[in-house]
Design a protein around this nucleic acid. Sequence first.
DNA 1: AGCCTGAGGCAAAACGTTTCGCCCTCAAGG
DNA 2: CCTTGAGGGCGAAACGTTTTGCCTCAGGCT
Lengths: 339, 339
Amino acid sequence: MAATYKDIRRMTGLSLATISKHFNGGNVTYANRVLIEHAARDLGYRVNDFARGLRSRRSMTLGVVLAELNSTFNTTIVSAMEERLREAGYGTIICDSRGSSQAEAESIRFLIGKMVDGIVIVPVGDDVEGLDAAAERGVPVVAIDRAIANAAVDAVVIDNRTAIASACELLAGAGHTKVALLAGPDSTFTMRERRLGFRQAVKRHTGKLPARTLTQPDNVSIEGGYDGFRRLMRLATPPTAIVCANYEFTLGAIIALNELGPDASAPAIVGFDNLDLARIIRPRPTFVVQPVAQIATRAAEMILQRVHGEATEGPQTVVLDTELVVGDASTYVLARSRS
Amino acid sequence: MAATYKDIRRMTGLSLATISKHFNGGNVTYANRVLIEHAARDLGYRVNDFARGLRSRRSMTLGVVLAELNSTFNTTIVSAMEERLREAGYGTIICDSRGSSQAEAESIRFLIGKMVDGIVIVPVGDDVEGLDAAAERGVPVVAIDRAIANAAVDAVVIDNRTAIASACELLAGAGHTKVALLAGPDSTFTMRERRLGFRQAVKRHTGKLPARTLTQPDNVSIEGGYDGFRRLMRLATPPTAIVCANYEFTLGAIIALNELGPDASAPAIVGFDNLDLARIIRPRPTFVVQPVAQIATRAAEMILQRVHGEATEGPQTVVLDTELVVGDASTYVLARSRS
DNA sequence: AGCCTGAGGCAAAACGTTTCGCCCTCAAGG
DNA sequence: CCTTGAGGGCGAAACGTTTTGCCTCAGGCT
């Protein structure tokens, strides 16, 4: 049904080798190029990736494995990255781990089966299974957002410590007397780093800034944010400000905050990650914003370099800075200190 | 480097045919099965999908083409669908059209090159280019969210007319004296249908319910919603309620609404699509909610049936009902009628 | 005892590319 | 006029599977 080189040979009288050369940028006379191009158009020819991949062991395809597909942070990055990769001539296969390390391992197997030339991954947890198979086959891997503990691969991450620390500084400067971090378990790199940033900032204000960390059992649920907010507010001395360590917790905390209604003693909240949210809520809250475009670009460049064999040194880690987008003063300045 | 059947043959003394049979569920003696399994494990054997696909012309892989990857509506559906497909033994390749028909056509070509056994698509516009190639190769296609005008394929859509109409009914019943629809251009199926639903509902109340449709030039921008809201409110007699025809317009309209501040004459807003948003905003707004889980399941089933050749009739269209999640009364009951 | 059947196995021919080694021709340099 | 080398082309051998047609052998049936 589908046309092949043989059909083109029949129409042009050229050999398979010549036809192949034409499609791969080799030396072919202009007349023959035209001939082949014409025949290909007539036949609706499309190269068979399977045959090509089988023979050449390259697929011109990169794989992307996402811890969670349903997350603006991830999809924004992937969308930008795919555009860049397509320009470079690579197709992209996106896989969803749905927060499961097992699905993640399956995705990696799937991609290796598809002979991808490289993999970009937003890992579910600290350890990623199945990367040894990638290493064996010489498939380069770049991690995004989180470094990988059990494999030495390139990574593009943000400066999580400074991100959280700068949020704390803002709050301390705005007169807050007790800040809290609403975080997930230490099992992921991101959470450990953010917690560390929080501790560092708090330490810098020792004696002046009582602090408290509330750790939710799971890492990314809206409920965790909602519930955490309420538990913090039930403390004997509730925090005057809450820093949320990820997007979902931010969402949950804001829901809980709204339920309090207009209340002078409502805590300030610093959110994470989602600018849309920041734009829609009045008064505008303060947000830690990740440089998604940069993350995408750097990750794309890194994987392309590895795939092209241009980068031969050991694994590199790129650390990017976040931005603290300060919202309306009323949302972060402590009421008592304003008077 | 990678092990092949030949390596297994060397270890077991069996023929390639027998080994192939074993991996494809054919009849092989128990002793030989064990032998092969053992050798495969020792060698770290993984089947080469390229060779298999080249020969068998099946890839056990389905393609998903999304108009917009960065959209909760789309990713929620895909995430659920992928899970279902994986259970059925199929891998999934997700592609992002980034709202561009050209990228969409490229994605389809890409997928056909990868020999996918079927394609699920959320089309960018009314017409989709490249589907003829799928038809030629006998690759079944299922459209989601929007029907496709220039190709006869299966589709899973929602009842857009009733969705919008029921929102209007609610508003009319709540005493509103003028309703408006904030919509995009008629170039997409969804918009045409939603507009039609609006007109139908309005007609049912002729004389009693003045109405107005504001059409934004683009289809999915937050700015369109923001700007549309403001233009509607500048009318000589502004609407008392605004129905937003998609998620982005909802977002924009709510931003504009918030900027008005607490104002008794603020219009009611009925949003579209995003439950998270509905949960986070107080008082809770009213939302038209699509049955994402159902959409995912039905689409998965349809494409699997086609791929398995179980469904031989002409293209089917499944129409699912939306749900009108009514928010706090204060957000949709007309102030004047409350007194 | 002969016949038939079905299970299990085998060799070899695809599948559609890329690539290797070889050949021809033509032009430029000696 | 001969040599050299490069441009352009060719046939054929891979690549790792699946599949087809054929063979054998054991057991149950007449």
